[in-house]
Design a binder for these strands. Sequence first.
DNA 1: TTGTACGCGTTATCAC
DNA 2: GTGATAACGCGTACAA
Lengths: 352, 352
Amino acid sequence: MDAGGDSMQVRGTRKRRKMQRVTMMDVAKLAQVSPSTVSLYLRKPGAVSPSAGQEIARAIGTLGYVPNLVAGGLAAASSKVVSIIVPSIRNAFFAETVSTLQSELAAEGLQVLLGHSEYGEEQEEALVRTALSWAPAAVVLTGLSHSAGTRKLLRASGVPVVEMWELGGEPIDMAVGFSHPQVGASAARHLLSKGRRALAFLGARMQEDHRAARRASGFEEAGRNGGAQSCEIINHPGAATVEAGAILLNRALERNPNLNGLAFSNDLLALGALFECQRQGIAIPDRIALIGFGDLDFSASCIPSLTTIRPSGDLIGKEVARLILNRIHDAAPEEAQRIIDTGHVLIERRST
Amino acid sequence: MDAGGDSMQVRGTRKRRKMQRVTMMDVAKLAQVSPSTVSLYLRKPGAVSPSAGQEIARAIGTLGYVPNLVAGGLAAASSKVVSIIVPSIRNAFFAETVSTLQSELAAEGLQVLLGHSEYGEEQEEALVRTALSWAPAAVVLTGLSHSAGTRKLLRASGVPVVEMWELGGEPIDMAVGFSHPQVGASAARHLLSKGRRALAFLGARMQEDHRAARRASGFEEAGRNGGAQSCEIINHPGAATVEAGAILLNRALERNPNLNGLAFSNDLLALGALFECQRQGIAIPDRIALIGFGDLDFSASCIPSLTTIRPSGDLIGKEVARLILNRIHDAAPEEAQRIIDTGHVLIERRST
DNA sequence: TTGTACGCGTTATCAC
DNA sequence: GTGATAACGCGTACAA
């Protein structure tokens, strides 16, 4: 027993050598069957005779056999990886989605290959290129804005593609998300319904974050159409942080001291504004009303609690997984559900 | 020529077929060289004649060739993936580390395979098992506590392993992180130095999060040794959220209304306590001093700003990447740097 | 139900 | 510097 226990003396071998030594062949030998039977058993345990199955299972156990997915992927021309590309995993939205997605996929034996585009289309294209070199079972992208090259690469590959976190355009293949202009409009209408007329949308990194920019547009349009006296958009070029929230608040009030209704592209910004108001003694919501986006962890607990819009990154992850799995087990042959709207929910709290 | 170009009529094929059609062979043909030369060029461009290199580069361009890493991994017996296993990507600490790590590795052509252990050792073992089936270039684990099976699997594989976010034990292979008991002790000493004597450590999920538990132990020991009148540990079994922070604060004050120095296992908890104090009119730091852990985004901006300890998830990511890359390019033959202490920094702010 | 034979696209070792 | 050639470990017709 315990074959393969190298006796610590053999340490000499210069090159690091992989000891993926136990192959399917070894299992087959020990179980007294052919490799293909083992392979079959691994993929469809039911399709093999119970007795053989027993033997194989035992052999796998005693040998500690771990299938080589690389070899499997090569032979099957499609590996058990799903490549997920998000702007940044530091962003709580995407962290949530990726987390859920990872769990759902892992349950089906799929691994997650992660990449960060940092909101850059060229970066994304490069990531897609290397992603495809893994012959992935699927590719998940964030948003609908991609370089022509990305789209072409993906289309040509024939790999299932899901674009998430945005709806409102023609997806490459499948899409799960919601309309950002509608989110912006919801925010505007809510502020208007509270009697606010001097509005502004404060966002971060909107020159790159197209989805935030679209929320801003939706906000502006709904604001103007809904009777707002003023309704401007202010962008902070840096990342969406609490600190940026304070900066944005000050900039906005400088430009228009009468502002009384503020929407933010992200709860972090709203929290920063909240703190800054507290610091300056600006009453919320009496003097100014705030509405965020994301329903992050702290939004329900801060003081005053933050009215916000929940996009449900969780649900998005679940639905993306569902689409992928459907496609893989090609349960849906030709025209399956390709676009899923996960909607958004406005959660009213004390800050408005 | 162009053998194998199915003429689009063949669409009937039921199974989704991968169109990874352009192979190295195609490139070789077009460039009038042998596949080996192409392979060589791809790996060491310098080792091939300039003229041939030109041709190959051109061919790759016109054909849009994308190397098949699966095949490469099989042939080389080691794929260009690094498997990273963290408790949860939702945790900002790990999100930061993974993000940095991803960037650093991507720059060297390494992909990141992500897994969540959810603080479970069996889960982790399962993840390690599948990770190994990819013949990864390296495996990155969180913490030093793993099942015996995990350790055995990893040791037997011969794959480089880095354990991160914790020091203070014998790593499987390499380790990058810091001592958690020391962090706890720093927090205790800081509170003591501010004249606080009735201390408590409030943590979440410490039955599973061993690192948090170790911070608690370090805190308790330093507290008692440093002359604290009382020094207890309170655990919230759920996740570390802002909401849990409020719950913990209340529970702590119930048990001992005289508490005047509180340390938290996570800034989110501290923020929750901050809000709860504000709600109840408890003065910070006059009545009670708070110190967190993590230096999260909001910690500098909240009111009062939060004294905290920064572990630098960023730096951890960078160092992990460095160790891995060193090992891969086996720049360091036998006894290289195996353990790196990234330390921790106490950042004093207004909450103490 | 089980086994045989071939191929997946690349790397690595040699000769040349 | 370059090019045959043999693995790499497994899927998958196809035959038995």
